[in-house]
Design a protein around this nucleic acid. Structure first.
Lengths: 219, 219
DNA sequence: TTTAAATTAAAACACATGTTTAAAATGTAT
DNA sequence: ATACATTTTAAACATGTGTTTTAATTTAAA
């Protein structure tokens, strides 16, 4: 089709960069079209609405990431640990670099905002997309941690999501602080290296006595 | 002063409930004044601006919570564990119930939004307020985990914050899902019971080989 | 009661947002 | 070259926001 950088792509590129840095709601169409050097109305012309643009930005990544993660999860060897499960995210995440130069960082930031934003439509959309993989993830984690009840697993998985999402959303700011305080430049990939042991450790932790189910389990 | 429910307090009460449910930016002054059954202009009359109202809402809790947490941290016995450190949050949090009936839940939600919102002024304000206690916390956690380098501690503490904040911000929605899927009503306090072992386990986890310092460590 | 201050009320202001409109420009077949 | 569809452009629209203004009202002091 286009010779070089069609309007639609210019919008997608500018939008994803701004979304990843400031979130979806905080980014206006006027900022996006200004950065993309296109007319304001072209967003509604090509995508229909801002909501649709947001979904289009997400879709570009999800279409690559989701099947890749699914494949990794299916490739797990029997007897795998919690750590092994979370390590399944490494390759799909690294592959994001092929979608875009700073793909891994951008994608995780987008994902963070997508999950954090209160907007129902995005929540529903991403949840639908993630529904399948979520089930796979839950099954794998339950197999690695058979001692955890479903409800415990439910909550811990959301704690994991929280730590992950948060680390990415406030990632740029945190990396700045870390670099200033410790004189150490920290790439986004290295944050993953620090995050995975943390969430695996949390997942493997013993459950609190008082939060155990009604079945009496002394000692 | 007032006989019963002064305008200023009606605004504060309505604002805190809406803020805790929808966040600061997503809540408009018109919603607040409608719920409080006061005139729109009274917010600016009594507080000066929306920013000032937000800070006033936060201050009501922080003034009680902060000294209480500080006291608990100072009361730690030598040889304390990571779990002990995080358990210092229990009493100050429970005390929030004296400020307001659903104080613990409201406060944690507010805190979550305060930390999550990108707005600089709130970030700065809360960080200033939390600066002292943060130092205390860092020192205590470092004493409980001497094997962690400062940079590792820095990141893990932020993962902890992420899991905590996230669990609270999306708390109401998650509790609904949990109740629907597991037929189990989950109070906010019980979420804390599930959260603390998780973050303690993550904090105590071994560090990833690749993220260790430049010292070569094969296998 | 009179007077002055504090508070409430209704309206308008200034600005930013996503969206739509209608005309101009461009591209593309016939 | 002509006719038609596609795309771009500039302007306006409709709505929601925090804030300010000005007058009415209530409260409290003299």
């Amino acid at each position: 089709m286009g010779k070089r950088a069609t309007t639609k792509d210019k919008i997608l590129d500018a939008a994803e960069a701004l979304f990843a840095e400031h979130g979806f709601e905080q980014t206006s169409l006027r900022q996006i079209t200004a950065d993309a050097e296109v007319n304001l109305a072209s967003v509604n012309y090509h995508f229909g609405s801002k909501k649709a643009l947001i979904q289009a930005v997400m879709a570009r990544y999800l279409e690559v990431f989701m099947p890749s993660l699914q494949q990794e999860l299916n490739r797990l060897h029997p007897g795998f640990s919690t750590n092994d499960v979370f390590n399944c995210f490494r390759k799909p995440l690294a592959d994001m670099r092929q979608v875009r130069k700073h793909g891994p960082t951008l994608f995780l930031s987008l994902l963070g905002f997508a999950y954090a934003e209160i907007q129902g439509h995005l929540r529903r959309y991403t949840m639908e997309q993630f529904g399948e993989v979520m089930t796979l993830l839950l099954d794998a984690l339950h197999e690695a941690n058979p001692q955890l009840s479903p409800i415990d697993m439910f909550w811990r998985l959301h704690f994991v999501l929280g730590a992950t999402v948060f680390a990415q959303v406030s990632g740029p700011a945190l990396r700045e602080i870390a670099a200033a305080d410790f004189g150490e430049a920290v790439a986004a990939d290295q944050v993953i290296d620090r995050l995975i042991p943390f969430i695996a450790g949390g997942m493997d932790a013993p459950v609190h006595e008082l939060s155990k189910a009604s079945t009496v389990e002394p000692r």
